[in-house]
Design a binder for these strands. Structure first.
Lengths: 234, 234
DNA sequence: GTCTATACACAGATAGAC
DNA sequence: GTCTATCTGTGTATAGAC
């Protein structure tokens, strides 16, 4: 699977995501006209990601956000009751995106080595497609209320458990070596995170997401596969 | 090399670090008595790390810091001119710790595979010894002034370059495979970061730093070392 | 050296005109 | 729906007593 294939399988365009955000928060968003709401949500969320990437969510003032989004303070607040609620909306949506993709890609193939590759790549490709969301979720996860924090941890545990399950199935099937699968899964997640946490590095070096994903798969297979026949360099 | 061996080779106890912080900032710190200064620096830095781990440096108010450190506002400010300068002092010291350890461990052994192991482990062990410093440096690196930001990037590039150099030497010596060494080095760094970014996870699972470091070395060697089957094929 | 009290800028949030 | 003007709390930093 290549990134181009992935894009054909999911619709996580900015517009589509904002439409979902609107639909799922209709009770708190005070704007009635859907088109207006989606258009402004795009401006607001885009501005949040830009500013947050530069200096973090805490350091972003609502005046910063107003300036960058092109909306006045009075025009923004009908979209959320408080800055903290805005944070919650973004994190909830981000988790939902990740979970949806995992549900879609964790099944289907029969061979464990194919399932592993699909799940790892799906995560990396989604983080490429929705880079600002992933960067945001990681960086702002620490500033959360108890409830939000719990949700993040559960989301982390879930994606890790999916990988562990695949590794165990592969060991039973005799294609993966006996390892400490929980540790392996953690390290795989670290490799995936690297992609969206150090976005500037790979952009500057002109490493594509397909190259990176293939490199990770190769790295993981060297360690996990029983017969180590990765003759293909890179 | 085990963590216990590492601890015998470096002195990065809280006290020793605070002594160095005082020595290197004597021009801006207004306290004359060294003992008083070091004692209070320990309180201040400890409180900064505690609060920052919970909610980030930006969200930490100076009143928070005063309460947690046990010093009044008036008693803290002689140690730094502003909150931003406090940030700078911590980051500068953290970079120096990392650089010192790298300089110490990157040479010595002759065989590239031993050098690689030593450098990887030294980084992980230092991050264990000085966990709050590393977590802090990673999480707060984004909120920096231009000068500080540049220094962080150079520090990143330096540690990566050391690893790349070892991988290249190993390839020339015929012990490491031909790979995209820059990508490998990036991924190794991601594995190292995992240890101090997800400290709670490994603490809860009772994974020791020696276990983690050995697992990483094993993972990396699977990918990098020329295998017996390869040599037979040649 | 360390304290308390305070200056004053800026934060998040809202009211009310249009 | 969107604007400007404004309320009120909290932030960083300092002055001056002890």
């Amino acid at each position: 699977m290549k990134y181009a294939d992935f894009l054909n399988m999911v619709d996580d365009s900015t517009r589509a995501v904002c439409r979902r955000v609107y639909a799922e928060n209709k009770d708190t968003i005070k704007i009635k006209k859907e088109e207006t709401a989606i258009k402004n949500l795009e401006k607001i969320l885009g501005a949040v990601f830009d500013i947050t990437y530069e200096k973090g969510f805490q350091a972003m003032s609502m005046r910063d956000l107003s300036r960058r989004s092109g909306l006045s303070m009075g025009a923004m607040y009908p979209y959320f009751r408080s800055k903290e609620e805005l944070l919650g909306i973004i994190l909830r949506q981000g988790r939902a995106m990740l979970k949806n993709v995992f549900e879609k890609f964790k099944t289907g193939s029969e061979r464990p080595e194919d399932r592993l590759e699909k799940v790892i790549k799906a995560h990396i490709f989604l983080s490429e497609r929705a880079k600002p969301w992933f960067y945001f979720m990681f960086m702002e996860a620490k500033n959360l209320s108890a409830g939000e924090r719990k949700a993040i941890l559960e989301s982390e545990a879930y994606t890790e458990a999916v990988i562990v399950e695949i590794l165990e199935a592969g060991e039973r099937a005799g294609v993966f070596r006996k390892r400490r699968h929980v540790l392996t899964a953690s390290i795989i997640k670290a490799m995936q995170q690297e992609w969206y946490l150090k976005r500037w590095k790979y952009a500057r070096r002109k490493v594509t997401v397909d190259e990176y994903a293939d490199y990770v798969i190769n790295f993981v297979n060297s360690f996990c596969l029983v017969q180590n026949s990765d003759m293909e360099a890179n």
